[in-house]
Amino acid sequence: MKVVGPLIVVLALVGIAWCCTEYLHWYALFGLVIPYVAFALFIIGLIVRIVRWARSAVPFRIPTTCGQQKSFSWIKQAKLDNPSSKAGVFGRMVLEVLTFRSLFRNNKVEKRDSKLGYTSAKWLFIGALLFHWSMLIIILRHMRLVLDPVPQFFQILEQADGFLQIGLPLLYISDVLIVVGLGFLLARRFAIKKVRYISLSVDFFPLFLLLGIAISGIIMRYGFRVDVAGVKEVMLGLVTFHPVPADQLSTILFVHLFLVCTLMVYFPWSKLMHAPGVFFSPTRNLANNSRAVRHVNPWNYPVKVHTYAEYQEEYGEKMKSVGLPLDPEVVSTNG
């Protein structure tokens, strides 16, 4: 159920977009209204969620330290895994976000009778990197559809991505890798028992959706061969708020676009928020310097304590009996 359900939903989304444009010709709805609404919901959702996180306090400085602290000049500090300065934290975050450093640390424990063994486990790390980096490159490549003229950076990126020079149109490596990456991530959700056990329908849904987006994109490029110039005209119209009719575009484009719109609406309310979330993580984005620089808790409040005066009052006689000094100042103030 948790697998089939999301798959059916994604297939239904494809079907809806197909029928509504191919047969009902609701071009304005799918080429204009839905993209605008979806984008607006995406931005609003992002802001709502991020503001909600930002408004939660960070009462304590609780980095997870994964290396040697800063103490003496003669003991080498792990500046990235146990940062004590803003620069160190920045470095740690860059590595987390761009290279999934913590995931790189991954290992696998195996049990044989009464022995445990630890083996390297880098597949998740590799699969995750493949998928995320291809997606980043693909998103950047899409910028040529909404920018005119296309800045040189994006042109170079596109050439680099197609450097294999296979086929016509040129095969983008990122297209292959994103499908491989997503396929791998999906496969491990089935194959690894523990992972299947913890998976929810909402873990399968984004994978199917992203696969849907990637595959429909690939079909457009290598199968149906949509009219890219026409697409660009429509997209430019959308982003400059001078929309042009989208009637000419092929149905598969509408499917692709509709899935992307779904992703945009879904994103802020789902686990995909891990993307902005990672920047907010208090176990990663804080320096381990709370002994050197005081961290202030915005909601710190006074608490009831058992004071020395009370202690001395209760145990004064016993303290005297073993020659412990009594504090005269405390006694006098306590009446």
């Binding site: 909600r52 306090a57 960070v58 609780i62 873990d203 686990k271 891990h274 993580s281």
Partner: peptide, 13 residues
């Protein structure tokens, strides 16, 4: 606790 709210939200399992 931002940690609490965030950790409720962002796990990808």
């Amino acid at each position: 606790y931002r940690s609490f709210r965030l950790f409720m939200d962002v796990c990808v399992r």
